[in-house]
Simulated assay, not measured.
Amino acid sequence: MISLDKLEQEAPALVNLAKTASVSLSKQGLAGQRAAVYLVVDRSYSMRGYYDDGSVQHLTDQALALSVNLDDDGLVPLVMFDTRPYPTVDVSLSSYQGVVAAQHQLHGGANTMGGTLYSHAMANVVEHYASARVSDPALVIFQTDGAPQDAQATADLLARWSKKPLFWAFVGFGPSPVPFLQRLDTLPGRVVDNASYFHAGAQPRQIPDATLYDGLTAEFAAWLPAARAAGVLA
């Protein structure tokens, strides 16, 4: 975990977010829990408004503030995806401001935003986590605004990877809940329930930070003992 003193020195704008995240973790009995936090964000064409209004950057800030309560490296690996995943970049306390806009423009901005394929982005996360050789579980925040074009492949992978120490916290943007994400939340055939779904609505920046954090942590907290009982976690 990152100390409050260090956070105030390196990223003072995240202090209140980190405190809010800490409260949600404590409510779920997760104070002192360690986990690697990943962030996957949708870069399909329908997402352009959420890049323009700062919603994706705000979620990145929220993910980093959650991470400082769970990990001590001050890094959140970020994966952008549309019809393909883009190279993973580490979001840090010294580099988080404007990182979404910078990466979005690096990949061509709105002119290159494509379709929606979840499975390749998920595979990137699993590969990155395996290469890191860490013993802590991973909490993967996976944001999207719609169902993927590879729905069956995504469901198959989620079921197969229920044997791995990664929990997938899906976050939906948009005016209506995403039925496919609701399906993933209750997908049968898994060793353990390794996914949750939180709908952030059409104006994600208006959702109270505490509400988002509660949505991200509640089922993660339930997954930890279930995963240990199933032998997924030591």
Rank of each mutant, 00 (worst) to 15 (best):
Q33P: 01
S44H: 11
V79A: 09
L166F: 05
A210G: 11
S131L: 09
S94H: 11
L78H: 05
A63H: 01
Y118A: 12
G174D: 09
V100E: 14
Q206T: 14
A147Y: 13
V68Q: 00
V68N: 00
V15Y: 04
I207P: 15
K19T: 02
K6R: 14
A151H: 03
L17K: 07
V99M: 15
A227D: 09
A227S: 07
F220W: 04
L158D: 10
L117M: 12
F142M: 12
A110T: 15
L14H: 02
S55P: 06
V76R: 03
M113L: 09
E10A: 15
F170L: 07
W168I: 06
P204V: 13
E219M: 14
P165N: 09
W161F: 11
L184K: 06
D5M: 10
V76D: 12
A147M: 12
V68I: 00
Q28L: 01
S67I: 00
L117C: 14
F198R: 13
G174P: 08
A18M: 04
L25K: 00
M113I: 04
V37Y: 00
A229V: 12
I2A: 01
A200C: 04
D145M: 05
S162T: 11
Q97T: 15
A11N: 07
G146R: 00
K163I: 13
P188L: 03
L166G: 10
G115F: 04
Y86Q: 14
S135M: 15
S162A: 01
G54D: 08
A121T: 09
P177N: 01
L166Y: 04
G74L: 02
S196E: 04
D90P: 13
F173R: 00
F170Q: 02
D156H: 10
S26V: 08
G32C: 04
F81L: 10
